[in-house]
Write a protein that binds this DNA or RNA. Structure first.
Lengths: 294, 294
DNA sequence: AACTTGTTTTTTATGGATAATGATCAGACC
DNA sequence: GGTCTGATCATTATCCATAAAAAACAAGTT
């Protein structure tokens, strides 16, 4: 049976919306809430019904008013707001990167299903999607093989990444002065400087900034295949470094410096300089990753 | 219930094996047949049982002998040897490229399942795999959207293709004289010349040669992401041109000429020449594709 | 007429069942 | 000991069922 994670997530979000309203105030229409919560009206109504049942709001004919501020206690726990398929992703990553899965390990749909407590349908679906990351391979009629989070994986990943990022950086530099990206890149620089100034306490915020930075550069000339590849990179960094915190602060500080150099190069419009800064950053990122794998 | 397409394919293949044997001759062991047919011994035994039941072979204790040559009539029809998931691929491609699916069309799992006569599970699985081709996109909890086989698809595809092929061609040229690839590229040239000499009757053989040629060049420095992208290219050309035969002969003749030029450039080891030949070929292929889409 | 909410229909996400296939175990043969 | 076949067990491919969520329809309000 389908889980009601969408409802629970919407319920939690609704709590945040209600907290911006005063008791006695009238709620927005179902349609407005639908847009705000990003779910269907069916789900909105279910949330409203739940709120009513808890006495948080009072439903009248054709209107609803806030009765009392909901407390944080009413929230559903985070885990219950994740679709099974999302939970599977996390479980699988953990199994792969932390459990002793070595290159060549055979992946058994049935066994994974049992281990994670989900139906094999879900596992199959997940593996089919996960295939694009290049870490597993299918053998027809006989399950999957884990190819390993190995050095050659990292090298192949970075070979492509270098091609794509150099391409984007060059196109970026070719944009006219009137383009809004120059403003965006400036605020990007500011964000980097801010983070650098406070690096000791905020170094963990870098991961998100990194992703934003590279996506900004990549967005100048959209290409669906490059965007799809950015998902691969994001996955690798998200999960790998989530469980591999060694030297995190130093690593991030270095990367910020490289980003700033690249920003400067971009602003100079000097292709040779850009190429150099870009390659320098990617080489350093590659070495860091390789180092953390070994 | 699972279909027995593996069995039927193996059965057909076994017919071909039996035709190389004389009546009265003893069959290879189950294990040997398993290796030849590329299936499990369970399936081999089922095939042998079928052959026995039809009187084609005679099963004795610990041996089996050919009784009579199987006739082609005993073969299972081709369609029955394709797994449901493979049939779905064809059906979907046909729906997409020939049926009136225009950009933005919503893809409905249930409806497709009904139309193709298969369970929605299969459709979901297929769509998840198909996602990597960049032609469809998922909206959570609400199906898929067909993005269209459009000009921008072709342009984005070729942008990546150019990066990858130029990279491979350069690496190719850097291989030492002692490498076996130089021999392979020579026989590749011969195959092209042969086809060219007989272009009027054999122009349809080019598609397969094209794929082999590009894979040979790509194989010099394996990269899983590039290989995966070659699947995208293969899919596009296979299905698109399967239903779009306009100017096929002329198109292929031109491409053969470009391949020959690239081969010559590779053998010269001159990077500038290689780049030019490679780019020329890709530009021409891109224009051809764009032209056939419009 | 544009927006509401109430109701019904359709579709998706997930679990479960089963025949076909693959993998494993156990004697038999040489 | 290695290879063969017979028998059993485990896994995959496929279908089907169902609650949750989305979409469509209908009718009431302003």
């Amino acid at each position: 049976m389908r889980t009601d994670t969408t409802f629970k997530r919407a319920f939690n979000d609704m709590i945040d919306i209600l907290r911006t309203l005063d008791p006695g105030e009238e709620l927005p229409s179902e349609n407005a809430l639908r847009a705000q919560l990003g779910v269907s009206r069916t789900t909105v109504r279910k949330v409203l019904a739940g709120m009513s049942a808890r006495g948080i709001i009072i439903s009248d004919v054709h209107r609803r008013i806030v009765h009392e501020q909901p407390s944080q206690i009413d929230r559903y726990p985070q885990e219950e707001t994740l679709a099974i398929s999302e939970q599977v992703e996390t479980s699988f990553m953990e199994w792969m990167l932390r459990g002793g899965a070595c290159p060549g390990t055979e992946i058994n749909e049935t066994e994974l299903g049992r281990k994670f407590g989900v139906a094999t349908t879900i596992i199959r679906e997940f593996l089919n999607r996960f295939q694009k990351y290049g870490l597993i391979e299918k053998r027809p009629n006989a399950g999957w093989v884990f190819k390993g989070f190995t050095a050659s994986f990292a090298l192949e990943l970075f070979e492509i990444r270098e091609m794509f990022e150099m391409r984007s950086a060059r196109l970026f530099a070719g944009l006219p002065d009137s383009s809004p990206v120059w403003k965006q890149i400036q605020s990007m620089r500011a964000a980097h400087l801010e983070l650098l100034a406070d690096i000791d306490s905020r170094f963990q915020d870098f991961s998100e900034l990194d992703s934003r930075f590279h996506r900004l550069i990549g967005a100048v000339a959209p290409n669906r295949f490059i965007e799809s590849f950015q998902d691969v990179i994001a996955m690798v960094f998200h999960y790998h470094y989530q469980w591999n915190k060694r030297d995190e602060r130093a690593r991030n500080e270095v990367a910020i410096g490289e980003h700033l150099a690249l920003i400067e190069a971009l602003e100079s419009r000097d292709i040779a300089l850009i190429d150099r800064a870009c390659r320098l950053h990617l080489t350093s990122a590659r070495e860091t990753l390789l180092h953390s794998i070994a």
